[in-house]
Amino acid sequence: MQTRLETAKIVTLEIEVPKVENPWMKFAGMFKDDPQFDEMLGYIEEYRRELDAPMEEYYQQLDVENETK
């Protein structure tokens, strides 16, 4: 093993990494000129608030309970 290490050569290889395009990039900006896009975002925000409401109420109850302790 020692002899092998003494006679070993260090070789530098330059490897070209292939450029892979992000598959989602073809969808970036596809709705930029859609007149209904802002309306759709409004619906999404409203739905998110509906889903979050029960947890918000629960957290507020916890805060009230912690303040009274």
Rank of each mutant, 00 (worst) to 15 (best):
A28M: 10
K9W: 15
G42N: 11
I44N: 01
I10S: 11
P35I: 02
V17F: 04
K26N: 06
E21T: 07
A53L: 10
L62T: 04
E6D: 14
M55C: 02
L51H: 06
T68P: 00
E65R: 11
A8P: 09
M25K: 07
V20K: 03
M30V: 08
W24M: 12
L51D: 05
T68L: 15
E46I: 00
K26D: 10
R49M: 13
L51V: 11
I44S: 07
L13I: 12
Y43M: 14
R49W: 11
A8M: 15
M40T: 09
D34N: 14
V17E: 07
E46S: 07
E14Y: 06
P18E: 06
E56F: 04
G42F: 03
E56D: 12
Q2N: 06
M40L: 14
K9E: 13
E65T: 08
F37H: 10
P54A: 01
V11K: 12
A8V: 05
Q61G: 14
Y58Q: 04
Y47M: 09
T3A: 12
E39R: 04
Y58H: 14
L62K: 11
I44M: 14
D33Q: 10
A53S: 09
F31K: 02
Y58R: 07
Q60N: 15
Q2T: 11
E56T: 13
E14K: 09
K9C: 08
F31R: 10
V64Q: 08
E21S: 13
I15D: 01
Q2F: 06
E45P: 03
V17Q: 05
I44C: 07
E6K: 15
E65G: 05
V64A: 13
D52I: 01
D38H: 03
D63E: 14
A28N: 08
A8E: 08
P54Y: 02
R4G: 02
A53W: 11
M55P: 00
Q60A: 15
L51M: 11
T12Q: 12
E45N: 09
V17L: 08
V20S: 00
P23S: 00
E50M: 12
L13G: 03
N66Q: 08
T12S: 12
P18F: 05
Y59E: 09
T68N: 13
F27H: 09
D63T: 06
R4V: 15
L13S: 05
I10E: 14
K69G: 12
D38M: 07
M40C: 03
W24A: 12
E6P: 08
L5W: 08
E21W: 03
F31E: 08
E21R: 01
E16Y: 01
